[in-house]
Write a protein that binds this DNA or RNA. Structure first.
Lengths: 343, 343
DNA sequence: AGAGTCTTCCAAAGCGCTTTGGTCTTTTCG
DNA sequence: CGAAAAGACCAAAGCGCTTTGGAAGACTCT
């Protein structure tokens, strides 16, 4: 059932039917009702390919997916997707993932906008002076950045969490509890979120005249194994930290294992706070010692990004407003006063 | 730069240019070279929307993504996606995720095929007599099932791993080691993979005249918390199992925690084998006691599914061949002989 | 040499929608 | 009452590609 057939059986022109269906004003309300009714009855659905060719609108939002044999997609992605998908569904938006060589995403971005394959895109895991953000900005397609870049000479719309504030709070708490030697097990520090977290920790320490020791900050892909390695390295050195802030629950798993392997305890020998993105399958309260966390649902962020993309597509949102969500600090049993030296 | 312009500057008809570019035989090789050269020089890329309207081909593969507030996307998905994306990239295929109400995916399937939004789809996490498989089969769009359904009255193409065989081997090993009371901590048993795994365990037990005790099989969403709960329940009952087969590494995390909480040890009090889908961020060899696993890379499966979809789209693959991959049984320190009773 | 066959190319008709630029009534208003 | 404005609808021109149905010329073959 296409427009031609439908308009023919209604004895109306395609123009009128099209307009009736799309809510244009220049059509009699009575007629509109007839049209809408007939469309529904015959299950008419405008052919998206045709509409797309005519209007350029696709009803899809895009994401360039870096791939490659040695490229691992972050498990956070799936949670983000849950939120995004949930919102997208309610607005009849589809998501198209365009796989790209991780080292050459530019070509893919250019392709999807040149071909008008999507109405908007989002960018995740941005880095300082992120080329993708700059590119997408000049290409002129609506977009939202999940996270933030830094050092760009233009403004852009983003939704981020207050990583610096979160880790500042976490570190401040640890300092207040008497810890003097903190360490940070961070994610890849080429990404802005990691930089912000480190900044937060440093700022909190500085406020008490402390510093993040040279060997007290690790920056690695967020795997259990890396968490373990980092923790061992930290805890086996002579000025081992008495408290660790950790960028991910998965890494925290490794930290806990390292602590156990070394015959230490949490929080007796080490206080631990990790960032929790709120996975349904791994909860900080279920760690053998319930884990204190800085918590922010990445799923909610996904929904929000979808919401803003939808708004930008339909022209309801404009400008370059960046929004920064506060992060909860949830204190559980994994933090305690610093162990007293020499006792 | 569109076809019209290009053909005009070449002083050829659109027909000829189009055919030259698409490799049709009825064009002089000399001419073809000229056309291809000019196209490259001017960066001509056929508008996909137009091509799509004309041919119905989209260059996209589809996946209906169940969403909803209480619907969690499996973290396995992201690994599968890595593989799929990696292959798709090399074939210039995009993936479109169409979010759907988890309870009504049919509408979405119908929509994407009625609208010809994708050239093929894949289905994951199938259940016995899966309605999606039946639907997609009748709708006549090329598809591959990742996993298997059961009890359908037609054949269909799938790529699955030998879940039954894997768990059969695992259980057989445990039995050989003297274990008499095995338990299974399984995933959602409405899904075929879980059914097959249970079947494998039962078969291995039966071969030695044993059975899977009434209370010795749990079937839950694969979260750490559920692994913990299941393990506690199992281990606290009077005829606690001496060995557990577990459907997921994440659940195994919970099992290990429960074992520790109960003051037991692995493998002294309990042998444990889990299924490993090969996540980069959580490895069985890094468990405090290295975990024996049935291993099968879900990423490879993703790549394979993409490969078969691409083949079906281009008509290189037909028929309903199902392929079943063998699964490795990797023995590590988490299994040992059954503890001797009463000693 | 004339009939058939290739080879190589083209004009034009789709694909199914939106949108431009009207036309024909009907209403409004000085 | 007549002109202008508003209301309701339509024909046809895109959007940019593929594909059908030729056609013109070169080649083969008897």
């Amino acid at each position: 059932m296409n427009l031609k057939q439908l308009s023919h059986m209604l004895a109306l022109s395609q123009t009128t039917v099209s307009r009736a269906l799309n809510g244009y004003p220049e059509v009699n309300e009575e007629t509109r009702r007839r049209v809408i009714d007939a469309a529904k009855r015959h299950g008419y659905r405008p052919n998206p390919s045709a509409r797309r060719l005519a209007t350029g609108k696709t009803g899809m939002i895009g994401y360039v997916l870096p791939t490659g044999n040695s490229v691992d997609i972050d498990p956070h992605f799936v949670e983000f997707l849950s939120g995004l998908g949930d919102y997208a569904r309610s607005h009849e938006l589809d998501l198209v993932l365009s796989p790209a060589d991780a080292d050459d995403q530019e070509t893919t971005y250019r392709r999807i906008v040149a071909n008008r394959q999507v109405d908007a895109v989002y960018i995740s895991s941005p880095r300082p002076t992120d080329r993708r953000v700059a590119l997408v900005n000049t290409l002129g397609i609506p977009f939202i950045v999940h996270g933030r870049s830094e050092g760009l000479d233009f403004d852009y719309p983003f939704t981020d969490i207050d990583n610096e504030g979160a880790f500042h709070e976490a570190a401040r708490l640890l300092v207040q509890l008497g810890h003097r030697r903190l360490a940070l097990i961070n994610g890849d520090d080429r990404e802005t979120f990691a930089i912000h977290r480190e900044r937060g920790v440093r700022r909190a320490l500085a406020a008490s005249g402390l510093v993040l020791g040279e060997g007290h900050v690790c920056s690695l892909a967020m795997t259990e194994e890396n968490g373990y390695r980092a923790a061992r390295r930290l805890l086996e050195q002579s000025d081992a930290p008495t408290a660790i802030a950790c960028s991910s629950l998965i890494m925290a798993l490794g930290v806990v294992r390292a602590v156990r392997d070394l015959g230490l305890t949490i929080p007796g020998d080490l206080s631990l706070i990790a960032h929790d993105d709120v996975f349904p399958w791994l909860k900080p309260e279920n760690f053998s010692v319930p884990l204190s966390t800085t918590r922010s649902s990445i799923r909610l962020a996904g929904a929000r990004v979808a919401e803003r993309l939808a708004a930008r597509i339909s022209g309801l949102e404009e400008g370059t407003r960046g929004e920064v969500w506060p992060v909860d600090l949830v204190v559980r049993a994994s933090v305690a006063g610093a162990p007293v030296r020499g006792y």
